[in-house]
Amino acid sequence: MKEDQNITCAEYIKENSMESCRCRLDFTLTEDFKGDVYFYYGLSNYYQNHRRYVKSRDDGQLLGRLSLTPSTDCDPFAYADENGVRKPVAPCGAIANSLFNDTLTVFSEDLNEEVPVFRTGIAWSSDKDIKFRNPPGDLKTAFANFTKPVNWRVHVWQLDLNDTNNNGFQNEDLIVWMRTAALPTFRKLYRRVDHSKTGYIPGLVKGPYVLIVDYNYPVIDFKGTKTFIISTTSLLGGKNPFLGVAYVVVGTLCLLLGIVLLVIHVRCSKSTTEMINVNPRTPYS
């Protein structure tokens, strides 16, 4: 809900031309989260695996090779109007245009402070080091002849004004989003808790917390949902029940199929004696 109105943020931004909305969600951790703690955002009923959506990007542009003629794969998100002037979009395409842009902040009520987090170290190193590059020189100058995607609130060189190394095409929020999910329900890494700060060295302790959401990303139109996830990792990675459930279901189906085939074999197959006595004159049964 919006803090000062009795309506949801989704309704508010729809009525106010996508104006940002802030809401507050209180929650309590009933047990300590020990070790490295990670924040994720999750989306449901969101088909990032759609063929046209997956292709809607310009990999040459994302490598810093800017061109005033973006790839045709980006259509219809290749050009946009800025102050009455039609300009190429950077980054172009449907994937970049739909970048998740909610701001999620966790506040500890026991420590009376915002939980410190890292905005970097969330993308695959192979993506950041190989697939994404910024154009040389000052980013604002480099992107002077380009405009932002239609659904963005800021330009690509303004994604992280506090860290120049996490800006432009090398912004890790952008890189994480550009790696499309295979299933319609998915989660993506959002932040890492900074465990070097006092009070967070052992992990995230149990107690009351507040999630502050700067709500910019509507999901009602495609009947989706958004979730905020706090998780830790082990030697086997983060907790994800999908593979376990899939293995159990497939294993059960294989077992049932094996039993059915065994019954068919026992009841319908020829005996060993009958098979031995088969000769050219044996009639078909």
Rank of each mutant, 00 (worst) to 15 (best):
F222G: 03
D160A: 06
Y209K: 01
G258R: 08
F228W: 01
G244M: 05
E31S: 08
E31L: 06
S20D: 12
V117A: 03
L243K: 10
V176G: 12
Y284V: 05
K34C: 11
D221N: 12
D73C: 11
Y53T: 02
V117L: 01
K34F: 09
G244P: 03
D4K: 10
L183Q: 13
P136Q: 07
P116N: 00
T225C: 06
C23E: 10
R187L: 01
P88E: 09
S271M: 09
Y41F: 15
N162L: 14
W152C: 00
D110W: 01
L236V: 14
V85C: 13
K188F: 10
C23K: 06
N216V: 00
G121N: 02
L189M: 12
G93R: 06
G251M: 00
C254A: 13
C92S: 07
L261P: 04
V37E: 04
V106K: 00
M275N: 15
I95E: 15
R57I: 15
C268A: 15
R192M: 09
F100P: 01
E274A: 15
D214T: 14
Y247C: 13
W124L: 13
V154R: 12
P91K: 03
L256C: 13
T252P: 07
F33Q: 12
F27A: 05
L257R: 05
Y12E: 03
